[in-house]
Design a protein around this nucleic acid. Structure first.
Length: 491
RNA sequence: CGGGAUGUGGCGCAGUCCGGUUAGCGUACACGGCUGGGGGCCGUGUGGUCGCAGGUUCAAAUCCUGUCAUCCCGACCA
């Protein structure tokens, strides 16, 4: 396990492997970039799921589940959608295997060829809209607010752990509305939920904005996004919410009868966040000692490590600490009392630091004699000794403080790495030497955007919803610009 | 699909240029003892057809040919 893990993406991968999640490749199969999520990693994902799911339900959404397989023809119904995803689809062509004739193994049975190939969903717009046609007839059926937790497959050329795996877990929401405005409002509502979750639960500060046309979702009229900044100065799109206008309704012929009895196409949104959020979480907070988890998402919030010699001492410690464990559990704080005799205290300290457990308590003979505990916080690595009878309240407050503190730290870093520039020269210089977000004027054309991307690798991460107003002139073309947009190199 | 690199016990690597003992090291794993407030120490032990297939040679991890796979950098992307 090397040092300087916070600086380079390859190094992040190193301890994803060691620690939380492993990219496990089927040997010699050519399947790359699939991930095995170990139990501890999955527990973090479950926390993310639970948090978001509640927010969706509180705003009137319901969960449902649609098929993994999508008939090939569905995909081609929306022109820009097929263009966006066709290059990265896994395709099912046969439905049976048989023993090979030379007896050496098992082969695809060519007789079992499918009439129409099935696509393993890269996203579910098509199959869901095909279903919505049957569900929606009247304005009384609207709005239809549905979310699904699922896995999807995108056969990318290059994969990167968490950020771009071949198969990933996500939630995708798909809604149908009677009016344009209602759909726009929905897309913005979800954007705000994503931002609130990222900042409030994950302690990851994000910038809300809209994508430029070229970065837009395939089939959307407008794509809202939240953009986060990683510690190595690269930007990460952490979530997107799309206003799909009537594109999918028209492609799948989803009409409804208005109050006036007229047939109209419905208005749509779709939105999603994925296991990429875990990448954002890790890359935002972690340090060279391992993960740093915000208390709200930590599967274990408090770990207690007894320091003892012999079972007598362990029993004495257990008796002494049990009331505190009960007290914390009563407050809904997840506590682990690690009394394993197979590992030494020092080993455990490092292990829980690696896992990002926010608060660690150590208790040994010294503490029993003095009635104290040693409390260590993961984010600052500070250790303090406190009276045992004050521990419950102290820890409760400490967890809140850590949650806030790591957010502040990330926010400060992010804010220090947003720089305004006015010339293309300066842009290139800042990009190369400092990274981060760069606020610059842009003439709004795809040509200029493409030129910048080609020459510098930087893309427009978003046109921020607020801030950076004020007109100027494009740093490349010199044409007028109404506002600055945010550029960055991105994952 | 273009450019670069790599495949050797579970993991990380050395050895390959210049062929020659029984293929080595770290770590992990198992057992014993001492330890126990930051990844402990000593000892013993398990585990490898050197990616695969051919070829050259008295002899191949090492040289040659082919092949498969993976990683990194591009194009693409949540």
């Amino acid at each position: 396990m090397g040092k300087n893990l916070t600086k380079r993406s390859e190094d992040y991968s190193k301890w994803y492997n060691e620690l939380v999640i492993k990219a496990d490749l089927a040997e010699n199969s050519g399947v790359r970039g699939c991930m095995v999520i170990k139990p501890y990693g999955f527990a973090i994902w479950e926390k993310i799921q639970a948090g978001l799911d509640k927010m969706f339900k509180d705003t009137g959404h319901e969960n449902a589940y649609f098929p993994l397989f999508i008939p090939k023809s569905y995909l081609s119904k929306e022109a820009s959608h097929v263009e966006g995803f066709a290059k990265e689809c896994a395709v099912v062509t046969h439905y049976r295997l048989k023993n090979s004739e030379d007896g050496t193994g098992i082969v695809v049975d060519e007789d079992a060829k499918l009439e129409e190939e099935l696509i393993v969903r890269p996203t579910s717009e098509t199959i869901i809209w095909d279903t919505y046609r049957k569900w929606i007839q009247s304005y009384r059926d609207l709005p239809l607010l549905i979310n699904q937790w699922a896995n999807v497959v995108r056969w990318e050329m290059r994969t990167r752990l968490f950020l771009r795996t071949t198969e990933f877990l996500w939630q995708e929401g798909h809604t149908a509305h009677a009016t344009r405005q209602e759909a726009v409002d929905e897309a913005e509502l979800i954007l705000n939920i994503y931002a609130d979750f990222a900042e409030g639960h994950m302690a990851v500060p994000v910038i809300k904005g809209v994508k430029s046309e070229s970065e837009r979702f395939a089939g959307a009229e407008n794509t809202y996004c939240i953009e986060a900044l990683m510690q190595d100065g690269k930007a990460l799109q952490a979530g997107t919410s799309h206003f799909l206008a009537q594109n999918f309704a028209k492609a799948f012929d989803v009409k409804f009868a208005t109050k006036e009895g007229k047939q109209e196409y419905v208005w749509a949104t779709s939105w999603g966040v994925s296991t990429r959020l875990m990448g954002a979480l890790i890359m935002t907070h972690s340090d060279d000692n391992g993960l740093v988890l915000p208390p709200k998402l930590a599967p274990i919030q408090v770990v207690i490590v007894p320091i003892y010699k012999g079972m007598d001492q362990l029993d004495a410690i257990s008796d002494k600490i049990q009331p505190l464990i009960d007290e914390l559990k009563a407050k809904d704080i997840s506590v682990k009392f690690d009394k394993r005799d197979t590992h030494k205290p020092g080993f455990k300290f490092n292990e829980y630091e690696l896992k990002g457990v926010p608060v660690r308590i150590a208790i040994g003979q010294r503490d029993l004699e003095q009635g104290t505990l040693e409390i260590a916080r993961r984010d600052t690595l500070e250790k303090t000794s406190i009276d045992m009878d004050k521990a419950g309240d102290h820890i409760t407050k400490l967890l809140e403080e850590i949650q806030e503190s790591i957010y502040k730290k990330a926010e400060t870093f992010r804010d220090q790495n947003i720089r305004s520039v006015d010339s293309y020269e300066e842009f290139k210089e800042v990009l190369e030497e400092q990274g981060g977000f760069i606020a610059a004027h842009w003439d709004g054309t795809a040509e200029t955007e493409a030129q910048i991307k080609k020459e510098t690798m930087a893309t427009i991460r978003c046109i921020p919803l607020s801030g950076y107003e004020g007109s100027g002139s494009c740093m490349v073309s010199g044409k007028p610009s109404e506002r600055r947009v945010l550029f960055a190199k991105a994952y």
